[in-house]
């Protein structure tokens, strides 16, 4: 049961991350504009636009390809949680400040940021943290 839930979370998070990363990567300029419209360090928008999609793709692929007993599997789960925490903060501050902005979460046509976007990101963050808790810790005989 635990293993099935872990596998389900890995697959779900991986699909969402890779899908989001590829969609953003396909039109990096549009994504950079979306990021700058979040009004959260707009000067960093072009850097975020080229780095974040590939981070999502790498972490998403890591969740799928790394065996669950490998210590890097927990690292991938933690990395996905860090990504989701950052994205949740970004959309939550937009909602809190009342900024009307296109989400850019899944490319150009992902609709505006609403409180539902925050709820969705919180759900994904919870999934990543649950996955981190479910994945087996490295055995004691492993070197530090």
């Amino acid at each position: 049961m635990k293993n099935a839930l872990s596998l389900l979370l890995r697959l779900g998070l991986a699909i969402v991350l890779v899908w989001a990363g590829v969609a953003k990567w396909r039109d990096a300029t549009a994504f950079a504009i979306d990021v700058s419209n979040y009004r959260l360090f707009p000067a960093l928008a072009p850097y975020v636009a080229i780095m974040l999609p590939m981070c999502e793709i790498v972490v998403g692929l890591a969740l799928i390809v790394i065996p669950s007993r490998n210590r890097w599997a927990r690292a991938a789960a933690l990395a996905s949680a860090l990504l989701m925490a950052m994205l949740t903060f970004a959309v939550a501050q937009v909602v809190a400040r009342g900024i009307n902005v296109s989400c850019g979460c899944f490319g150009g046509n992902s609709g505006p940021v609403t409180s539902l976007t925050v709820v969705r990101d919180l759900a994904l963050l919870s999934g990543a943290l649950l996955l981190l808790a479910l994945l087996p810790r490295p055995s004691a005989k492993s070197p530090h």
């Binding site: 780095m51 790498v58 972490v59 890097w72 991938a76 860090l82």
Partner: peptide, 9 residues
């Protein structure tokens, strides 16, 4: 390790 994955990406 998580930071290495993110930095690699």
């Amino acid at each position: 390790r998580a930071l290495i994955l993110l930095a690699g990406g």
